[in-house]
Amino acid sequence: MSDIVAANRDRLLQAAVEAKAFAYAPYSKFRVGAALLTEDGEIIKGANIENASYGGTICAERTAFVKAASEGKRKFAALAVTTDVASPIAPCGMCRQVIREFCSLDMPILLAASSYMEKKDGVKELTLEELLPYSFGPEDLDRDRAPPA
């Protein structure tokens, strides 16, 4: 874990819990909060926002990345995610791919159980590479390819 992540770990996890309070989840009732730590120590929060058409729903992790990217922030040190579930829950596949777009494979991702604020435990820490092995990222677009047949 980098120094910036270690110094901001509790603040990042608390921000994810705070973000969860703003989730708009009238259909699934499954609230998710995410907090993204920039390389300069800023924290950007995101909550899941559902939509009656379901396909228009955006996850908390993607909300945080969209907010950050739309403000010109593109370098991140860590991500924290929490739900109302008693055990840590990992981001969905689509979120994993968005995380991969912006983050290094060794970036820590902290997955917090719903009890984190009371007990200060129940956090599973993974790297992006552990969360998304054999991933496809922006650098793969520069790979040499065979000419079309």
Rank of each mutant, 00 (worst) to 15 (best):
T83D: 06
K124G: 01
A64V: 02
P108C: 06
L110V: 08
N8W: 00
K120V: 06
D106T: 09
S2D: 06
I44H: 00
G46I: 01
I109Q: 08
E129R: 09
L131H: 07
A68C: 07
V123T: 07
L37I: 10
V98H: 05
I89M: 12
A34Q: 02
A60Y: 02
V123Y: 07
L111Q: 08
A25Y: 09
C59F: 15
S114C: 14
A80Q: 02
K124Y: 11
K124S: 08
A15M: 00
L141C: 04
S104N: 12
A23Q: 03
A60F: 04
A52M: 12
E125V: 14
A52V: 11
S135L: 08
Q97H: 14
D40S: 13
E118N: 11
Y54M: 14
V17Q: 06
P108F: 02
V17H: 08
E130T: 01
A23W: 00
V81Y: 03
A80L: 03
R74A: 15
E18C: 00
K29W: 14
I109C: 14
L79Q: 05
I58E: 15
M1H: 09
G46K: 00
S53Q: 10
L141T: 08
P148I: 13
E118L: 10
I44T: 00
E129T: 07
A149S: 14
T38E: 11
G33N: 02
S114L: 12
C92V: 02
K73Y: 09
K75N: 10
C95L: 06
N8H: 09
S53T: 04
R9N: 05
A47W: 07
P91S: 07
A86C: 14
N48A: 09
Y24M: 13
I89E: 11
K119L: 13
P108G: 05
I43T: 02
L37E: 03
A52D: 15
E101Y: 11
E125L: 04
R145D: 10
A19L: 02
T57Q: 03
C59D: 15
P88M: 09
I49C: 06
D121P: 11
L141R: 11
I99V: 12
S2T: 11
R143C: 06
V85G: 13
C103S: 05
Y116T: 08
V81G: 00
K75S: 14
E42L: 06
I99F: 02
D10G: 07
T82A: 01
R96D: 06
K67L: 04
G137C: 10
R9M: 03
D106R: 03
D142Q: 13
G137V: 05
L37V: 09
R143P: 00
E61N: 08
K124R: 13
A113M: 04
Y116C: 08
D144R: 14
T63S: 13
E42A: 07
E130F: 05
K73L: 15
V17E: 10
K124D: 11
T83A: 01
A146T: 09
D10E: 10
I89L: 14
L12V: 04
Q14V: 10
